[in-house]
């Protein structure tokens, strides 16, 4: 493992009224040969962090590079691209958009000049159509001028089940999952090193987010548990816990919500009553709990109330 480009000031502090300052440099960790990860912060996005709130990175082959998520703003995307250029001069032939969420994809514009294929789930275009404008407005609200240049990039290559990307001497398997964290989740598996990029199918420390189906999420995690991996990258957070035990905290959290929401439904509680009571035993285990937990219960209730 090597830590590259650990420069002093990680960010130039952005003045919201000025044009966005570039991020001075982006920390990269080579977690397995050719697999470079930048770990985002757990903070809420702000002009100070420019939306650097998710784990992003890239895989380098002999012929070209696959980028896996690009961060929450064009500024983060540009910084990732610069960091990548310090590692390799090979062309970027793929940018994988792991799902629709803004903290993962607004940096994609920075890679347009490389003319890569933008790879997304078959459900991603529909999700982007429904949410893209709303996400862009919300980004402007939160980042101000620092959101400048952040645009939705449409996928140019869609994955229905699986797609193998040939990076030259390195095959990277992109897998499209059924509804889980969202209805457009992708994972990326570098077979050579056994490195599994999970994006937001795995949250570490950061409260997991359910924006697809909580039952689907649990089902997908049970399947992922069977996938062998020597290294793995969560969508948020980092851990020393080995694979696949690293999935267990999130699985437990989701199962607690399901069990307690079913009890609330059985007791004929309303959605608001459920939101106010379900899952608080998990509060100490996660950061950003207030921000995301109640929303997860809302979503779980709206899903589980249809169970027979």
């Amino acid at each position: 493992m090597a830590v590259l480009a650990l420069a002093g000031a990680r960010f130039a502090l952005a003045d919201v009224h000025a044009a966005p300052e570039p991020i001075a440099s982006l920390d990269l960790t080579e977690i397995a040969p050719g697999n470079y990860v930048h770990y985002g912060t757990h903070e809420e996005r702000s002009p100070g962090n420019l939306g650097d709130n998710a784990n992003i990175g890239f895989i380098v082959g002999n012929r070209c590079v696959a980028v896996i998520d690009t961060g929450g703003s064009a500024a983060v995307g540009r910084a990732l691209r610069q960091a990548l250029r310090r590692v390799t001069q090979l062309p970027v032939c793929y940018v994988v958009l792991t799902h629709v969420h803004p903290d993962h994809l607004f940096g994609a514009t920075a890679f347009r000049e490389d003319n890569p294929q933008f790879v997304g789930h078959t459900e991603l275009p529909r999700a982007l159509a429904a949410r893209g404008k709303f996400y862009a407005n919300a980004l402007k609200r939160d980042l101000g001028d620092a959101a400048q240049g952040s645009e939705v990039v449409e996928p140019t290559r869609l994955v229905k089940d699986e797609l193998v990307l040939d990076l030259g001497g390195r095959s990277v398997r992109v897998h499209a999952w059924p509804v889980a964290h969202t209805d457009n989740d992708l994972t990326v598996h570098d077979e050579q090193t056994g490195t599994l990029w999970l994006s937001d199918l795995l949250f570490v420390d950061h409260t997991p987010v359910v924006d697809g189906s909580i039952l689907g999420f649990i089902k997908v995690l049970e399947q992922l548990r069977e996938v062998p991996a020597s290294h793995f990258v969560p969508g948020h957070g980092r851990t020393e816990t080995p694979w696949p035990q690293a999935l267990d905290a999130e699985l437990r959290y989701l199962k607690v919500i399901v069990a307690q929401t079913r009890l609330a439904l059985k007791a004929r509680k309303t959605i608001q009553e459920a939101v106010d009571t379900v899952g608080y035993s998990e509060e100490a285990n996660w950061v950003n709990f207030e921000q995301f937990h109640r929303r997860n219960v809302t979503s779980a209730y709206a899903e589980l109330e249809w169970e027979e």
């Binding site: 809420e44 969420h101 996400y135 919300a138 924006d211 697809g212």
Partner: peptide
Amino acid sequence: AAGGCSAPSAKNRVPAALLGKMKFKFEE
């Protein structure tokens, strides 16, 4: 309003076969 990745649109498709299915639930 919620920030971040929360959006007002639907989370996933309603299967066509289920369209218009209705349920009553009573408090008591």
